[in-house]
Amino acid sequence: MAPPAVEPLEIAALSKIMDELDYYQLLNVESNASTADIRKAFHISSRNFHPDANRELAGELREQCQQISKRITEAYCVLRDTRRRNSYDSRISDGDSLRIQIAEAKTAHVEQRKAERTGATAQGRQFFGKAEADLKAGNLTGAIQNIQMALTFEAGNAGFKSLLKELRERQKAIS
């Protein structure tokens, strides 16, 4: 039989302090670690704490080991994803909490897409708003000008670009 991957004492100790560790500490990486480092750390931690690596454990230790394993997966899940990691970083710097819902980042992503649609900067949003008003009033030329203005502030905004393209095509169709 393979020996247990980690000492029982280590499991018991980690299980006790787990809630006080942030994800970086849990995975034993620096807070500026690269995604590759985080993946490597996840692999090392998994070798130690994954249920498959600790099949001989029984009772409370087994339970503790499983809890650690699940928390490690959670940490990896958040830190490997830039979006999630950013949300998490701002949360721990606010001193809010050491954990985050992994599904929460999805909402953050939706907000990002919304920003893409209506503008990520104040000026971008302002000119997008004007363009929308122009469209409602039937002023296609005005709308095009305002979207072009919005694009000068957010040159990379894909939502604005496709809107501009669409408006130009509409204009072409009319003339």
């Binding site: 249920p51 809890q67 394993s69 699940k70 997966t73 959670e74 899940c77």
Partner: peptide, 15 residues
């Protein structure tokens, strides 16, 4: 139905 654990999340996991 609100997502709690998204697809392609590594397992074992708990939320």
């Amino acid at each position: 139905a609100e997502p709690v654990i998204e697809r392609n999340t590594p397992v074992p996991i708990e939320q």
